[in-house]
Structure formats: C-alpha cells, structure tokens
Computed example of a mutant assay.
Amino acid sequence: MANFLGLMKQAAELKGKMETLQAELEQVEVEGSAAGGLVTVVVTPKGELRKIKIDPSLMKPEEVEVLEDLIVTAHGDAKRKGDAMLAEKMQGLTGGLPLPPGMKLF
C-alpha cells in the first residue's frame, strides 16, 4: 500500500509540473530555416506556425513553387527542433516516474 501511495504522490507532483511546463511551452518559439536562411518560420514546440519570413529575392513569379517547397522545409525544420526540445524537457520531468513505453503526456 505504501508503494501505491508513493506512486499517487509522484503522479500528483508530475501533474503540477506538467501544467507548469505546458504554460512555459506556450511562450516558447522555435525558428527553422531553409536555403541558407532565405526562408524562415517560427513555430511553437507543438508545431503551431507563428511567423514566416521570406527573403525578397525569392519573389519571382517563376519561382513560386520553389518558395512553397522552402516554406514547407523550413516549417519541418522548426517542428523537428520543437519536438526535440519537448522530448528533452519531458525526459527531465518524468525521469523518476515509471511510465509505459510510448505513453504521451501531450
């Protein structure tokens, strides 16, 4: 029974830490880029797109398709960085609590 109570206490502490982490992550932005910085995007760690910056040299009508591909690539770069940041924070947060493999808290 003591193990169960200890586990419940850890779960309650984890819940509080998770709420704090979620609030922190709402304020964090991650920047990704493509083509040496000609296109950059800013996303949240959850992947919400916040900003796009496009170098004016790319605004040629015949290069619209290239520009569209670069935006997708830059967004993917920022999303990967955000996922890595989230995974690192989660690992530190749940280090002492045994969670089943693959269990996602977000």
Rank of each mutant, 00 (worst) to 15 (best):
P56C: 00
E48M: 11
T73K: 12
K17H: 07
E29D: 08
V39T: 05
E48H: 10
G96P: 04
G36D: 05
V28T: 09
G6M: 12
V72R: 14
T94F: 06
E13R: 10
L70N: 01
M18K: 12
I54C: 08
A12L: 10
T94E: 03
E62W: 04
K53L: 05
V30M: 05
L86G: 01
M85E: 10
N3M: 08
V42I: 03
E65R: 11
H75G: 08
G76A: 13
L105T: 08
V64W: 02
A84T: 12
M103N: 00
G47L: 03
L14F: 09
D69N: 15
M59E: 09
D83M: 13
K60Q: 14
R50Q: 11
G37I: 06
A84W: 01
G36C: 07
M90V: 13
E29C: 06
A11C: 11
A74W: 01
A34K: 06
V39Q: 00
V43A: 05
G6D: 15
A2R: 10
S57T: 11
K17N: 10
G96W: 02
I54W: 03
E29I: 03
F4A: 13
M59S: 01
T73Y: 00
K51E: 15
L49F: 12
L67Q: 02
M90Y: 07
M1F: 12
D69Y: 03
E31D: 06
V42L: 07
T94Q: 06
